[in-house]
């Protein structure tokens, strides 16, 4: 079977901050990582390949430096990695990004038919969760989002558990299909030494604007229907009362509880309602 993993190199967003003095985005020294959700998609593809045989191809779009993320991804046991990189792709929103990636997948599909595509449920720098479904839609593949378990893979179908607010939905789709994954899907493995050595010597394929019959009007800033008009720090909620509970913890606790009742923040008899937990 042919598994394709869509993978994105992202800044570690827990490190991205706004400089309190200049009010600008501090991007210096923010490390780049493989989008954590994508890593779980890659893990699942590798596991399935080991089980049923086949091939894992990684596809990414990004600046030339994203090659490093692809080399790292190769060390987990993938067979081929392609980086789509071109100035013309820069500034694409999720609609345009899905166009570019789906075009690449279409080209791969023509020579080596794809059975299953994996992508993270979202990228941690954008959190839009739109690119995966956008690719599925353009390729005409059924999409199964928020997967937490691949239950069964046959020659013609895949069955997954999807996470929703109210419970787990068990869905079966005909292949080829696209799955976006949650972290609960699996636990990440370590790269094996032979695979690490193989990856160190591997050079990802670089595809650019001329590699495919791209439509320039559907990509980049001008091909993106959405644009950012304003960026600002999140509004702060103004704080209330700071209460020193260091000296007399018990007395402080009692007086706070008293105030809570006095102000009707919590009413008497919530126990009567019950069943909340």
């Amino acid at each position: 079977m042919h598994f394709v993993v869509c993978l994105k190199q992202v800044p570690d967003t827990s490190e991205v901050r706004i400089d309190p003095v200049t009010n600008t985005l501090m991007r210096e020294g923010v490390p780049s990582i493989i989008n954590p959700y994508d890593a779980h998609g890659l893990e699942e593809a590798i596991r399935l390949k080991e089980k049923v045989g086949g091939k894992v191809t990684i596809v990414s779009m990004g600046p030339p430096q994203a090659k490093e993320a692809l080399k790292k991804a190769m060390s987990f046991g993938a067979d081929r990695a392609i980086l789509l990189s071109d100035r013309a792709f820069g500034g694409s929103d999720s609609l345009a990004t899905a166009y570019i990636l789906s075009s690449a997948l279409q080209k791969i599909h023509e020579t080596e038919p794809i059975d299953l595509v994996f992508a993270g449920k979202e990228a941690i720098d954008g959190d839009t969760a739109q690119t995966g479904p956008g690719i599925a839609q353009r390729l005409g593949f059924p999409q199964l989002t928020y997967a937490i378990k691949v239950r069964e893979l046959t020659d013609t179908t895949v069955t997954v558990e999807r996470k929703t607010e109210s419970g787990r939905q068990i869905v079966q789709a005909q292949l080829p299909a696209l799955i976006t994954v949650e972290k609960e899907l699996n636990d990440l493995s370590y790269a094996s030494l032979p695979n690490m050595m193989k990856a160190a010597a591997y050079e990802p394929e670089m595809w650019n604007f001329n590699s495919l019959p791209f439509d320039v009007t559907q990509m980049g800033l001008k091909g993106s229907p959405t644009s950012v008009s304003r960026i600002f720090a999140p509004p702060g909620r103004t704080g209330g009362e700071i209460i020193d509970g260091m000296k007399d913890p018990k007395g402080t606790a009692e007086s706070v509880v008293q105030k809570i009742f006095q102000q009707n923040i919590i009413m008497v008899h919530p126990l009567a309602k019950g069943g909340k937990h």
Binding site: G236, G239, E254
Partner: peptide, 30 residues
């Protein structure tokens, strides 16, 4: 503490049980 209506600076291991006890007392006795 900057977003809290009541921000209690203190040792949670002492304050939380004391709050629990006080809530219990008042709620049970109405």
């Amino acid at each position: 503490l900057k977003v809290a209506n009541y921000g209690i600076v203190g040792d949670l291991f002492q304050i939380v049980p004391a709050m629990t006890a006080e809530f219990k007392k008042r709620l049970q006795h109405g």
